[in-house]
């Protein structure tokens, strides 16, 4: 039983990171019907910004600031930096292709992704960087519920993710911007005719999605401590999977999808074999898609005649 619950914690940590990445994919897809394959690289840049702030503050072993200030600062810097990067990508790589064939932006996204990976390789070299979190927030600090150990870092990650998701839900459902985003997603042309500045709404969507990816980058750095130029590829693929399982374009779907993929990986690795954990995840995905072609929460695609 405790083994089972331990896996629940493991799965939730990983799942909340996937969910944050998935949200970026899903929001962009919802509004533009565009698969933003450069999203993983935005997350990678976020992780590097967090690492940069940590290094500038003296590194994890000997920080000039207390952890309670430093960690929020890392999140803030990474989120703003990634957000701006996302807006720039949209402005220069996707906007010129707004009315182009559907697959054209895919290649543009791949170009951006190559470019950012190579730029990271050039600027930061290929060495795998380590946040060294245990030095900053020891893993021994945490909650012990009976035999179960939950480290503070994991609690921090899960709580931050939940806060961000709640904030996003409020933003989309309660604010004017959220309303404009929903309108634009529903019908871009009609929204524009109603006086909504759709270009600005789309830029805002990219900003928010990328902010979440930047936060996810710092989270991965904190829990899994490994930052390098190619980390965006696999995480992007997982986040994308999560978005699809939940029903791409659907915000609660992306959250649930992310958690599901995280849990599936953890339980597959724990009960079957980590050898097949990826295979299990992909099989689940294909299974879900065959049974529910639009994902768990997605609305079936209607064809306009």
């Amino acid at each position: 039983m405790e083994f089972f619950v331990q896996q629940l914690v493991n799965g939730l940590t990983l799942g909340s990171v996937y969910a944050l990445i998935a949200l970026g994919y899903s929001m962009v897809y919802g509004i533009l019907k565009l698969l933003n394959f450069a999203h993983g690289e935005v997350y990678m840049v976020g992780a590097f910004i967090g690492y940069g702030v940590l290094t500038m503050a003296g590194g994890a072993a000997d920080p000039v600031l207390p952890a309670a200030v430093l960690v929020p600062l890392m999140f803030l810097a990474a989120m703003i930096g990634s957000g701006l990067l996302g807006v720039a990508i949209e402005r220069f790589a996707y906007r010129p292709l707004r009315d182009a064939p559907r697959i054209a932006p895919l290649i543009s996204a791949v170009g951006v992704s190559f470019f950012l990976q190579a730029a990271a390789l050039l600027l930061f070299t290929a060495r795998i960087r380590n946040y060294d979190t245990p030095e900053l927030i020891p893993f021994s600090v945490g909650v012990e519920v009976g035999p179960l150990r939950i480290s503070l870092v994991r609690i921090l990650v899960i709580v931050t993710a939940v806060v961000l998701m709640v904030a996003l839900t409020l933003l989309v459902s309660r604010t004017r911007l959220g309303k404009a985003m929903r309108a634009t997603a529903y019908d871009r042309e009609a929204a524009a005719m109603m006086g909504i500045d759709t270009d600005r709404v789309i830029a805002a969507t990219f900003f928010i999605g990328s902010v979440l990816a930047g936060a996810a980058g710092v989270m991965i750095g904190l829990v899994f401590s490994r930052v390098f130029h190619f980390m965006g590829f696999l995480a992007g693929l997982k986040g994308f999977t999560a978005a699809v399982v939940g029903g791409i374009g659907n915000i609660p779907g992306a959250m649930v999808g992310g958690l599901l993929i995280g849990l599936a990986e953890a339980y597959a690795a724990a009960y079957l074999s980590s050898r097949f954990s990826e295979l299990v995840v992909f099989t689940i995905l294909i299974g879900v898609m065959l049974v529910r072609p639009s994902g768990l929460f997605g609305t079936p695609a209607l064809q306009k005649v």
Partner: peptide
Amino acid sequence: QLVLGAILVVMMTARP
């Protein structure tokens, strides 16, 4: 890799 990425973006945006 840098040039390859840049060229892909430029070519696609110039001629979708």
